[in-house]
């Protein structure tokens, strides 16, 4: 049993590493895009099946985002980011739990260097993915802030010479932005990776029956982490687009 913090490289394409997490990201993307395109291919006035389900989900999420953001205009801008974060992370987390993902692979190397190389691995159990999401989250938050309340006013949150207190609060705010990236990425990565490790450990200790409750737990954790990530992004955007008093 070997546990690798980094994702495993399967192959490379003109020097570009293709890892198992990247591969599953593409699978998840392909499924989401297909689902999205198929569901809206022909919209019916009286919704049925897939359209009905997606409509309900999107309507509820829109209402949720609007309840935080407030206005319809801002909600329409923020909503696609929040939903994309949510569904991408949620489906990535759940795909990592499908039996076969992380367990089907090949052995490579010789002797002590022998390594098991799974073909697929949950994208969110790779720090590259979560870090990428965290960067996007923090950067769009700042962009929304600047676009809504103006550059000088927004920058005043970080650099302020009005008073010594404001100056130090500005420094703290700047540090908080960096900390946000780290907390976003490591929270998601930690939860998903730990879940996978937990499942591997339990499965190797008591196979077949014992991992099932943990699998249920991981399904729940996967949902919660997707929700936490998107809701935190939403709240940070709300804070950023609200002018300081």
């Amino acid at each position: 049993m070997e546990i690798s913090l980094a994702s495993e490289q399967i192959t490379h394409f003109f020097g570009f590493p293709i890892t198992n997490t990247l591969l599953l990201s593409w699978v998840v993307m392909g499924i989401l895009i297909t689902l999205g395109a198929v569901s809206t291919y022909r919209l019916n006035a009286v919704p049925r099946g897939l359209q009905n389900a997606l409509e309900a989900v999107i309507e509820k999420l829109f209402a949720l985002v609007k309840s935080v953001i407030g206005t319809d205009k801002d909600t329409e801008k923020v909503f696609p980011f929040i939903v994309t974060f949510f569904v991408f992370i949620l489906v990535s987390n759940w795909f990592g739990l499908i039996p076969g993902v992380g367990t089907i692979g090949v052995e490579h190397g010789q002797g002590d260097q022998r390594m098991f190389l799974p073909f697929l691995r949950a994208p969110t159990s790779d720090l590259n993915t979560t870090l990428a999401f965290a960067f996007i989250s923090v950067i769009i938050t700042n962009i929304f802030g600047i676009a809504t309340i103006g550059f000088t006013k927004y920058a005043g949150k970080f650099i302020s010479f009005k008073s010594p207190i404001a100056f130090f609060v500005g420094i703290l705010e700047s540090v908080a932005e960096i900390a946000k990236i780290l907390s976003f990425s490591f929270r998601l990565f930690g939860n998903v990776f730990a879940g996978e490790v937990l499942l591997v450990v339990i499965a190797s200790l008591i196979p077949y029956i014992a991992p099932i409750p943990f699998l249920g737990l991981e399904v729940f954790v996967g949902f919660i982490q997707a929700l936490v990530f998107s809701m935190l992004t939403l709240v940070f955007i709300k804070v950023a687009i609200t002018a300081a008093h």
Partner: peptide
Amino acid sequence: GIKWQLLAAQVFNFFILFFVLKKFLYKPI
């Protein structure tokens, strides 16, 4: 396991998904 190529690839992936879903799912619905 942080590699800038992978980081960039995931950023790219996110934006592909974002734009495609925005165009084909969120906006129409």
